[in-house]
Nucleic acid binder design. Structure first.
Lengths: 389, 389
DNA sequence: CTTACTTTGTTAAAATAACTAACAAATCCA
DNA sequence: TGGATTTGTTAGTTATTTTAACAAAGTAAG
């Protein structure tokens, strides 16, 4: 959609054209002014003027000359990824993962901090502040060149007000977290829940880079999904899209209250653990439940095999329902699902082929633990390219 | 998204600003130049110039003066909805519904044509051509002022190539239908499947006018949904979004092939009919199955009551799954579902409250049979406002 | 080695469309 | 009746892009 309802003036156009040049340079480095003029459909003088401006601002650099193509040799230009820096942070239980990245989203320095229990708002803020200082020091990044920080928090976040309405493990409840961090760190903050951050991570720098729509399905303590449509994160009208743990999949014996989250109850890590224990299987809580089931199944346990099939069937059902609604280009499986082996993946693919008319490409998450951090970083980059209009 | 990757020049800005003025005028008629300047954030001279241009082109009209607000009385402007006209057409079985509308999407003249059986491409084209001529004549619309025709077809349509890949009832299979109609009628064509058209109809001129996201759920021979997110129809990566008939809801006794479309098989009109017959209930195929079940249930049939509850449960499950994924602002129930009474609606709402964390507003379709036609008309209006950029 | 031709990048002038400032027209209110 | 206010227009300024022309720096052929 091209600015529906908005009106623009010359400055707006200029900003757009600068953005267009940067966009080209970001996705294909080492272009000449002449090439940029062709690609952006702007005149060469115009490109020259805009480029000169951006060289002055440090956004673009000249990096030598290229080969002649029958005439004067071109001066190659490059997007200066070190012009500014972005910070990403992810809270996970009592741990804080944090990193500094360049404008391309490449991590320059990374740190892991354990918060002191019990976690409250103040201690979390303090950890953020201290870790940020250390990271900037480590990476030799000037604080003034940081354009913002992306923060991933567990639970549902109400992004607009920057208020976290449900973030159980961090001890932040109904606080204007966004503003608080903003004031403390004196940096623009982009806040989002952990699944959305991981989704953006896989989308921009992981399994889903290049596609235009993607569902990131996460199985952990609960089950949730992040959704990207038309290259944009889709959050839903009340920030509750992708809450697929509430889908009605699997047995739901009790017919009334307490049915909340049937899919999640049956097929999250906890749910599978419960079923395994009910079957009398010996499983521990430390290692992947899926791996244990596969192992037991290979050792000949028919009970484990049955449960494994049940899990495949349940997960496939969740995928089928989601895919039926959204028809995404790609599906990225994450959390416990990354422990699927070829056999399990094929089993799920077979079921889907029987159930739904169109199949997305299905991949395991590529970034694993780094997904959230990458997403936090990229969410700032995204927000920034919007802001500069 | 504001034209990412695109670059613009002055003409582009002008077009945008004209569009902005028209946009304001469309959603609030009778505005003065001064008011437009405030609303569009353009200067008054600029608005004056653009308005004069558009008055010349017939897009805008001056319609008297308004009340003074302490100074010179404003000259009121109105979007000239009769400047151009659009045509909508919907094929449904062997019938063709067609209408001419003004630029506001208000129907000026409407016609119903029965096609001669068996329906093939040629007879359908001919019917289109003849009905169009009659409609233009009836409404006194000059053919040169028609900006396009929207055509709704059953089945999945591949819009990009204008090819219908699956449109069983019209006899059009894998034909470049869009281009064919375009050549025959000498008009720009917007082609889409029937559910998408009905969705747009309810969105622009029905139950969902004003919301920014909406799911239009249709229960008929099959079950499908149209999806609008961020005020835009979402089609999916392979034009297969909203194929919720394939969701895994209800019993699926056979475990292998033939499970295709479990939800649809159980809870479409046909599915419910099958169940009713299996229970030995006396129902006919002509009147609404839901109404018959309600009637029988009220007359004391416990079997009908049981089936009715089963249907509510099934539909609610489908809604729950869809809502869990999308979190839409509104849900519009259509097709057989419009025969839901207060009791049935409440029953479904209660189930949902138990199952999902956030509830959309739920409404019955407001346009009924006219939805497709309204959608066809509005799809052209939409396409047109894009084209003029 | 010279000349003709290409490609790149810059300069200068023209074109477009927005904005500001100033003013005329029309109305209200004291 | 005169001052204040709102609307709409006119004239001139500004910002940005485009076109046309040219200088710079190369290739290639004789």
């Amino acid at each position: 959609m091209i600015g529906r309802g908005k009106t623009g003036n010359a400055k707006f156009v200029k900003q757009m054209n600068r953005e267009g040049i940067l966009h080209q340079l970001r996705q294909e480095p080492r272009l000449s002014r002449a090439e940029l003029a062709v690609k952006t459909k702007l005149s060469r003088p115009c490109v020259s003027a805009l480029v000169e401006e951006m060289i002055h601002e440090g956004l673009i650099r000249e990096v030598g000359t290229g080969e002649s193509r029958g005439g004067r040799r071109p001066i190659l230009l490059e997007y200066n990824v070190q012009a500014y820096a972005v910070v990403g942070a992810v809270f996970e239980g009592s741990e804080l993962e944090m990193a500094v990245a360049d404008m391309k989203g490449e991590l320059i320095a990374q740190m892991h901090t354990r918060l002191k229990q019990p976690v409250d708002g103040e201690s979390a803020l303090q950890a953020l502040e201290e870790t940020l200082a250390r990271l900037l020091d480590m990476s030799g990044t000037d604080r003034g060149r940081v354009i913002g920080i992306g923060v991933g928090l567990p639970g549902i976040t109400q992004r607009r007000s920057g208020t976290v309405s449900h973030a159980p493990s961090t001890g932040w409840m109904d606080l204007p977290v966004g503003r608080e961090i903003e004031e403390r760190l004196q940096l623009p903050v982009v806040l989002d829940n952990d699944v959305n951050m991981m989704t953006q991570g896989e989308f921009f720098g992981g399994a889903g880079s290049g596609v235009s729509s993607l569902v990131y399905m996460y199985v952990g303590t609960g089950i949730g999904a992040g959704i990207i449509l038309d290259k944009q994160l889709y959050r839903g009208s009340k920030e509750a899209s992708g809450e697929i743990g509430y889908m009605r999949i699997g047995d739901s014996p009790g017919r009334r209250k307490g049915e909340f989250g049937v899919f999640e109850k049956n097929f999250s890590v906890n749910g599978i653990h419960g079923k395994a224990k009910a079957l009398g299987l010996e499983v521990d809580a430390e290692t992947s439940i899926l791996r244990q089931l596969i192992q037991l199944s290979e050792e000949g346990s028919s009970q484990a095999e049955g449960l494994l099939n049940d899990v495949y069937h349940g997960w496939a059902s969740g995928i089928a329902n989601t895919v039926s609604v959204l028809d995404p280009e790609m599906l990225v499986l994450s959390g416990e699902m990354v422990h699927l082996n070829e056999d399990g993946l094929n089993r799920i693919r077979e079921l889907l082929l029987d159930w739904v008319p169109v199949m997305p490409e299905i991949r395991l998450a590529a970034l694993r633990e780094r997904a959230g951090l990458m997403g936090a970083v990229h969410s700032v980059l995204e927000a920034h390219s919007y802001a500069s209009r």
